[in-house]
């Protein structure tokens, strides 16, 4: 309960709350000798209550004017879930269908649309997760940091509907995805979900760095490979040994690199929206470790409550004024 006010100098008005101590608002009726009137507990209680009501009413008005609010605060919670970074491929091939064709009409769904639809559903399911979104194409795109705000994440995913860019620079994208976990407490599981439809060779310098970062941040990696019909898959072995290099088969080599990481890694090959849905539900099932996380509660304006209270109390005082005896 961290309370604060917008205009602190108005709090000087709280001094006015002592006024009811001097005058209870009732008209004074003269009496020759008060000693003649016997002590009465009920009257005493009502007199006290009257002053209290008047003081609260003034305090309510002053606090309302000063703009009382509850400051933004963070609550520590424990739930089931993970820190998830969705790393989305924004290369232009994502705008093609699974069949490798440009989307025509409403019949075929592009890979990006399918991914968007299924990830949106995935995000909606994961109630307690912190989810961040990063994208990559020619260079990595910082979209949204790890947050519990579902709406923001959904909006970030929806934003991938804009036309994609050209290249696929996966190592920089991974670097950015891993950077999301810096300055985050190590609790629950940490996941990078890489959604891509292609791969690129990673040079040895980047390889070194990624190895180190994956180890440091203890991040699990899930790679959902949206395979276009006819293109080489992750698990395919080259028929010709001359093609067995990173330039010719980047998917295979990327998979090999990921498998050689010290952290758990799983690859899903999805040739259709249905397969993609299966892959996502697998991740959903796998990642349910206890998670300690901090939920942020936004600033709450309490001035309306103050005014309500003051109105109520003033109405009460008005009622009391009506039953006052006039002599």
């Amino acid at each position: 309960m961290n309370l604060a006010v917008d205009t602190p100098w108005l709090l000087a008005g709280l001094l006015l709350t002592v006024l009811p101590l001097f005058n209870n608002g009732l008209r004074l009726t003269a009496m020759p000798w008060l000693t003649m009137i016997p002590a009465d507990g009920v009257s005493l209680a009502i007199a006290l209550l009257l002053r209290l009501i008047a003081m609260s009413a003034i305090a309510g008005l002053v606090l309302g004017l000063a703009g009382l609010h509850r400051t933004e605060q963070s609550v520590e919670r424990i739930g089931q879930g993970a820190h998830i970074v969705l790393l989305l491929d924004r290369s232009s091939s994502m705008d093609n269908t699974f069949a490798g064709l440009a989307a025509s009409g409403k019949v075929d769904e592009t890979k990006a649309t399918a991914a968007r639809r299924l990830l949106t559903a995935f995000v909606a399911q994961r109630k307690n997760d912190l989810i961040g979104v990063a994208e990559y194409s020619t260079s990595p795109l910082f979209v949204i940091p790890l947050t519990e705000n579902r709406q923001a994440v959904q909006a970030a995913i929806a934003a991938t509907a804009t036309p994609a860019l050209s290249f696929t620079h996966v190592s920089k994208g991974l670097g950015m995805a891993l950077s999301f976990f810096q300055e985050q407490p190590l609790t629950g599981s940490r996941i990078v979900v890489l959604v891509s439809d292609g791969a690129a060779a990673i040079d040895s310098d980047d390889e070194q760095k990624l190895r180190q970062w994956f180890k440091q941040q203890q991040v699990r990696l899930y790679w959902i490979f949206l395979r276009t019909a006819g293109s080489p898959g992750i698990f395919d072995k080259p028929q010709d040994s001359r093609d067995d290099n990173a330039q010719a088969m980047p998917e295979r080599y990327l998979h090999q690199f990921f498998s050689s990481l010290d952290t758990p890694y799983q690859a899903f090959e999805a040739e259709s929206p249905h397969a993609l849905a299966n892959a996502i539900s697998d991740i959903n099932r796998l990642e349910n470790l206890p998670l300690q996380y901090v939920e942020r509660i936004p600033k709450q304006d309490l001035s309306a409550v103050c005014y309500m209270l003051a109105t109520l109390l003033v109405t009460l005082l008005l009622g009391i004024k009506c039953v006052e005896i006039k002599r």
């Binding site: 009732l26 003269a30 008060l34 006052e324």
Partner: peptide, 26 residues
């Protein structure tokens, strides 16, 4: 009814919640 009475000599005041019982007491 509710009445605030003030002593003419001392100036002290008291609030009374008048009801038949208190009236009888006075």
């Amino acid at each position: 009814g509710l009445v605030s009475v003030q002593d003419l000599e001392s100036g002290k005041d008291r609030t009374l919640f008048m009801r038949p019982a208190l009236r009888q007491k006075i």
